[in-house]
Simulated scan of single mutants.
Amino acid sequence: MIADSTPSSASAAPGSEGASSEARSGEPSPPPRFDPAMPGVAGVYNAFQGTEKDSLPAERAVAAELDELIGGGLDEARRENRAALARMVSHVARHRPKIRQWMDIGAGMPVPEGEKISNLSALVREIQPDRLWLNVDIAARPLVHGRALLDGDGVTTLKGDLRQLEQLLAEAERHLNLRKPVVVILGAVLHFLNDDEAARVIAVFRSRLAAGSVVIVTHATGDSFPPGVVEKVTSHYERRTRVQPYLRSGEQLAALLADCKPFKWHEPGSGPQELPLKKVPLTFEMLPDESSALADPSAPHARAAIAVLRGS
């Protein structure tokens, strides 16, 4: 809601496990309290694939209810969301080698051991050994697990709220130089913000981050749902988690990114290429490989985009 991004664990949008930001003292503030009876976004996301290690019974129940409402396929969508994020961060790391700063907002739970996909920070480290990486989340469990399992070797876990982006970026400046380009990952996060909030996030990034910064996005969509299902899914999710999702269409996501530029690169032996923003692809269509070719196109896949900030 994703490789370091399990998704968005209410994820930097205030949600079921608390909301605040890093202590001004410079010391990490304690994680927000959470109620094990209240499903959290990150745990529901993990439960889509039936993993009990990183989800609670209440979260597994919500995942099963949502999967039934949609008609199945959420486990497939989750796997491909993670795989698409892995492909996108690896691609950007290779084709923007001068950008060595990364910020994953709504990082969620670290990838469980034994999965085929590594955490995003580890994938980028293989390409950029000296990269700096911030994992940002607002929920208790991702913060605790992230600090215990991922911090060190250029990785820092930071508590922050995407809806309080100016404050989040002020805290991020303690770790990154925002006067230089940054890669921002919003894996399964923007669909927890309403239209005004999401537009403001992109506008703040454009005004506060250096031109040439890159934004990587995955976003849930209801484009393939039968009539009436989007409303049932969003209302049920909000009732069970106290977090409202906004399942935007591909056209709506493209409009949200309209002030950004397509990601362009040059492959040896071929002409210039770009990832267009006017038609935001589904995750299995983004930088496809042998694995994505096996994806079930009937599953409720998310949308995926890579955009370059123009600056304001």
Rank of each mutant, 00 (worst) to 15 (best):
E80I: 14
P297I: 02
G114L: 15
I138Y: 06
A83H: 13
I216V: 06
L256V: 04
F34C: 06
F192T: 06
P14T: 00
T6S: 15
R206K: 01
L294A: 15
V89Y: 00
F48R: 13
K279V: 10
L123D: 14
S21W: 12
E231R: 05
A139I: 13
E290V: 14
K180W: 08
A122I: 04
P31R: 04
F34A: 07
A258N: 07
A37V: 11
L309A: 06
A198T: 03
R141K: 10
F192S: 07
Y237L: 07
A86M: 12
A139K: 11
G108V: 02
V204Y: 04
M103F: 05
V184S: 03
D223Y: 01
I216L: 08
G73Y: 07
M88P: 11
G108Q: 03
S249F: 01
L85M: 13
G18K: 15
A122R: 09
F284Y: 03
P272D: 07
L275G: 14
L56T: 09
W265T: 06
V124Q: 01
P39R: 06
E238N: 10
R248N: 03
G43W: 13
E231V: 04
G108M: 04
I70N: 04
K264Q: 08
L178I: 08
E173W: 02
P272I: 04
F48V: 12
R174M: 01
H91T: 01
S312K: 15
W102R: 02
G50P: 02
E251P: 07
L149F: 12
L165P: 02
R125N: 03
Y45A: 05
G18E: 15
S291A: 15
E274I: 10
P281N: 00
P281T: 01
A61P: 07
P30R: 09
E231I: 03
S25L: 10
T51F: 13
P97S: 09
L165N: 00
A254Y: 07
